[in-house]
């Protein structure tokens, strides 16, 4: 591509000025409330808003809102595979793709899938796969063993926050103590199985075990909400026969 040499071009790399802002030191008392008024050290998940069946072209879709996190999810398929090897044809195959819109975070993201998106796609795949009856593929619909719910916590020293917001997830604690990190668990509630587990940071084994238990508790908190949303969607799609 010809380049206009007369134009003054900007620097090759540039960063958003917000990155250079001095972050206010986190001076929350350990037993104080969180920024959004929730309790620390308690299974206090944000209220969620869920609706199913919003995208008419998709085979299944859902929209969820929790705090300022807004997410839309669509399921398409089944369709013919590109790979035609025999080993793949015995059961259905699940593919997942997760993307951030470029304007979803404080920093503008790129349209191309980054490594963070790919990592999340993979985690989603591993968490959903155990719940799907892929061996029943040629039947209509996708049967599932159970719903997959997920919850995460952020450990900060001896205290933790459940369902952390973006600020809580990305705030760097100034205390240089042990047990700093994040943990996400995907859980199948009626089978009591963990289908996804991911953690980072630096935690002792006891903290990790306690964290997993807390996350499971968090999953049970949102279970009725999701069940209700699903029941509502089914009722709308196939209304029960009126008694009159």
């Amino acid at each position: 591509m010809p380049v206009d040499t007369k134009r003054v071009r900007g620097p090759e790399v540039s960063q958003s000025p917000s990155l250079f802002l001095c972050k206010p030191a986190k001076t929350l008392p350990p037993d104080g409330l969180r920024a959004d008024g929730r309790q620390r050290d308690q299974v206090d998940v944000r209220p969620v808003f869920v609706r199913c069946g919003l995208v008419s072209q998709a085979k299944g879709s859902a929209y969820i809102e929790a705090g300022n996190t807004k997410l839309i999810c669509c399921v398409y398929g089944p369709r013919e595979t590109e790979r035609k090897d025999e080993t793949d044809m015995k059961c259905g195959r699940l593919t997942t793709d997760m993307r951030f819109t470029p304007f979803s975070c404080q920093e503008r993201g790129s349209w191309i899938q980054g490594s963070h998106d790919k990592d999340l796609s993979l985690m989603l795949h591993e968490s959903l796969q155990p719940a799907l009856c892929l061996h029943k593929y040629p039947h209509a619909g996708i049967e599932m063993y159970d719903l997959v719910l997920s919850c995460s916590i952020r450990q900060d020293g001896t205290s933790y926050v459940v369902d952390p917001s973006y600020m809580e997830e990305n705030s760097h604690s100034l205390v240089d103590s042990e047990n700093q990190g994040g943990l996400t668990v995907a859980y199948l509630p009626s089978l009591n199985q963990i289908s996804g587990l991911q953690s980072d940071g630096d935690m002792t084994e006891d903290t990790l075990t306690a964290g997993v238990r807390t996350c499971i508790e968090g999953c049970f908190k949102i279970y009725p909400v999701i069940q209700h949303a699903l029941a509502r969607a089914v009722r709308r799609a196939a209304p029960p026969p009126s008694e009159s």
């Binding site: 591993e126 796969q129 155990p130 719940a131 042990e178 990190g181 943990l183 199948l188 089978l191 009591n192 199985q193 963990i194 289908s195 996804g196 587990l197 991911q198 953690s199 980072d200 940071g201 630096d202 935690m203 002792t204 084994e205 990790l208 075990t209 997993v212 238990r213 499971i216």
Partner: peptide, 24 residues
């Protein structure tokens, strides 16, 4: 003995109790 990262991989799911056994 601190844990800096954990991840479940593979297509199956695990019982919470067996996860605790495995972390130990």
């Amino acid at each position: 003995g601190t844990v800096t990262c954990t991840r479940k991989v593979g297509g199956g799911s695990l019982d919470p109790e067996s996860i605790f056994e495995m972390t130990e």
